[in-house]
Design a protein around this nucleic acid. Structure first.
Lengths: 225, 225
DNA sequence: CATTGTGAAGCGTTTCACAGCC
DNA sequence: GGCTGTGAAACGCTTCACAATG
């Protein structure tokens, strides 16, 4: 599931380069995964490749877009106009990829009014109004930890049904709400874990064991030709 | 593995609130996971709880920190001083959590010299020098997609052994390098997939099936008392 | 007697391996 | 001949269930 967006990006790139047919082998190589996995994944879409040939790029792009619901835009609203909120709003790739920023809100009246990436920061009390008038389904939480739960509750009350949470807290929301979390500290700590293993392994300071590193965890394999 | 940092954060919070003993049940509730999972996870650390009582918070914090290699700081270097790089540098929580920003570099001479979050932006040619003098092991790629592979190669050449990549591309690096990826577009597209399912399910436009949503995927469960 | 630690079962995902097809 | 589609095996992670124990 998390791989479909990756395939999609690669396929779009390939289409830009006038490639119109691709094998599972090649796609796997570009995506840094196993070819059998690519075929299994694509088989769930019900879309068919051609045996002996491969998959038609344009058709696959269409199918994946369809499956992911990317046939139309999904406006998002950002809660929190601090460093991160500003960066997200300013990052053009958001709108480009079908997720235009319908609004940014903050609790701090001092932040209201400034313009970020073409969108004016509004007060959080206007959240419901933005969500309703712009038909927003997806909310992004870019507040400090302390404000995240409140932001989530406001988003849910406003009618948002999916949340992307950048705050390092476990949100408590109704189970019908889809939540995804991006936690920078967690990512860095996982890297730190590997660095530490590296260090202790070579010096033999610690005996054995530790948590598993099956093969090459989350690591991208070289994909050059 | 990815859960240890979450436990750690919660345990530190609990310690701040003067809680000195915690059961797997309670920790599981706060972390939004199953209690058996917590116990299994903690058992890998070799750290022992007390049957009938629970785990000693301070001791667990120490053990997890140790396992994750968080007993000392890991300076990081950020490549790319655009929106995201700026936000990352400006985000204080980075240094607080043991990952001080040792430097920010950019290819664009126009960006060099400005100061972000107390760190002056330097030219990418100085990367090696920063990595070596500051003993940096972890690099963060915050460049546009087009520059990411080059950034990765420079980081590796400079001696970095772990990379956190925010660019939506599959990096090709030696297998000894640990890479983690944070892809905002992928996260949003996964949410879009769920939104789309929601929409089609209720209107019955599409028949059945689709990719699995086992239970409540990646969703945090309510954890209130 | 509440709670840990852990074998064993359950389950979803990955990989293999090859039949089927163009 | 080359490549897809897919049963079946392998694997790893999650959950159960309960014996062990402070």
């Amino acid at each position: 599931m998390a791989r479909l967006p990756v395939y999609l990006r690669i396929l779009v790139e390939q289409a830009d380069e006038e490639v119109d047919s691709i094998s599972s082998d090649r796609l796997a190589e570009l995506a840094g995964v196993n070819a059998a996995k690519v075929r299994k994944d694509l088989s769930y879409l019900g879309s068919y490749g051609t045996r002996g040939v491969g998959y038609e790029v344009a058709y696959l792009v269409y199918q994946i877009r369809r499956e992911l619901g990317l046939t139309h835009d999904w406006p998002v609203v950002i809660v929190g106009a601090g460093n991160l909120g500003q960066a997200l709003a300013g990052y053009g790739g958001f709108g480009e990829r079908g997720f235009p920023v319908a609004g940014i809100v903050d609790v701090d009246p001092a932040k209201v009014g400034s313009v970020l990436g073409g969108v004016r920061v509004r007060h959080i009390d206007e959240l419901s109004q933005i969500v309703q008038s712009r038909r927003v389904n997806i909310g992004v939480i870019a507040t400090p930890s302390a404000g995240a739960q409140d932001a989530a509750e406001r988003l849910v009350r406003a009618g948002v049904t999916s949340i992307l949470n950048f705050a390092p807290v476990v949100l408590s929301v109704p189970r019908s709400i889809e939540v995804r979390k991006v936690d920078l500290a967690v990512e860095l700590q996982i890297l730190s874990y590997h660095e530490q293993r590296r260090a202790t392994q070579s010096t033999g300071l610690r005996s054995v064991g530790g948590l598993g590193t099956p093969g090459a965890t989350a690591t991208s394999r070289p994909a050059s030709a």
